[in-house]
């Protein structure tokens, strides 16, 4: 049971969603955008958030799009992880979606919720960081489409009242060589100790990470090392540990030292597999 009341709004258009947000704000109420709702319901139940209203975006046509046209894949923010995985349009994103929570929850959790939520891993962001994806946002100042990396710096940098509408992925990325490795402490279904996601473009390996630090990231310095074939795979993997944007993250799932150990071994195997043509 959620131990307090909130207002539930289900707008039919982007403008309606933004307008009701503004209206609620003007009434002094806090509102959160809602799609799958699993994180919001959990946090409301535990009392860590207490919104006055939820704005359900699932009835907005632009937020449920899942199609390829004009050389891009368009995915609405309210699409579920399972829909994305089963569409098979973007296998790397499908792999990421298929390793978040369990299958039943994948039928509820939305792409927008995974990107904009508070859980630090945001695993769907990794394929988007690597694929030159764009994202469309809508808010009180209107609609804007920007490179995903322009508004994602470990977490979404949204303006007040803004919400994710769609992501757009260029077609070159959809069939590109890729790898997705998620290491967990015990069970297959768990938060990542380390998630390494890689995508190759023109023979150059792009890599993004989560779990190892307190937020997902992609680093040009790390990619330069990973692609330096004058060094052995082991040396490259070791050097990456010195280029992390912050000290390795530690919690009950795994200490920072352990996560660094896992990352080094994972990267070393990944590089060897890549050079031996196994990916």
């Amino acid at each position: 049971m959620i131990p307090f009341d909130f207002i539930y709004c289900r707008p039919d258009s982007l403008k309606e969603a933004s307008d009701v947000y503004i209206q609620l704000r003007n009434e002094g109420k806090t509102a959160v955008y809602y799609a799958g709702g699993s994180e919001i319901i959990t946090m409301c139940r535990s009392g860590s958030i207490r919104p006055d209203a939820v704005i359900d975006i699932k009835n907005i046509p632009e937020c449920t799009v899942l199609k390829i046209d004009a050389q891009k894949l368009h995915i609405g923010a309210a699409c579920t992880l399972n829909q994305i995985k089963e569409s098979k349009f973007f296998p790397l994103l499908g792999l990421a979606c298929g390793r978040i929570a369990d299958h039943t929850n994948q039928c509820r959790i939305s792409l927008g919720g995974n990107l904009c939520g508070t859980i630090i891993y945001r695993e769907t962001s990794l394929p988007l960081m690597l694929s030159d994806a764009d994202i469309t946002l809508y808010g009180p100042e209107g609609q804007r489409t920007v490179p995903f990396l322009a508004v994602f710096n470990g977490r979404m940098q949204l303006k007040a009242g803004e919400f994710a509408v769609q992501v757009h992925i260029p077609d070159w990325a959809l069939e590109a060589r890729c790898a997705h490795i998620k290491r967990t402490a015990n069970e297959k279904i768990d938060y990542p100790l380390v998630n390494v996601t890689a995508l190759w473009k023109d023979g150059f390996m792009r890599a993004a990470f989560c779990g190892i630090c307190s937020h997902p990231f992609r680093s040009g310095q790390i990619e330069a090392v990973l692609n330096d074939r004058s060094l052995s795979c082991d040396v490259r993997a070791e050097k990456v540990l010195g280029l992390l944007p912050e000290p390795p993250y530690g919690d009950v799932e795994g200490s920072g030292k352990y996560r660094a150990f896992i990352l080094r071994n994972t990267l070393s195997s990944l590089l060897e597999d890549a050079e031996n043509g196994k990916i």
């Binding site: 539930y8 709702g37 699993s38 319901i41 959990t42 299958h103 039943t104 929850n105 039928c107 509820r108």
Partner: peptide
């Protein structure tokens, strides 16, 4: 399938 504890 849906977990009814996570649906309004």
């Amino acid at each position: 399938p849906a977990k009814s504890c996570l649906m309004l």
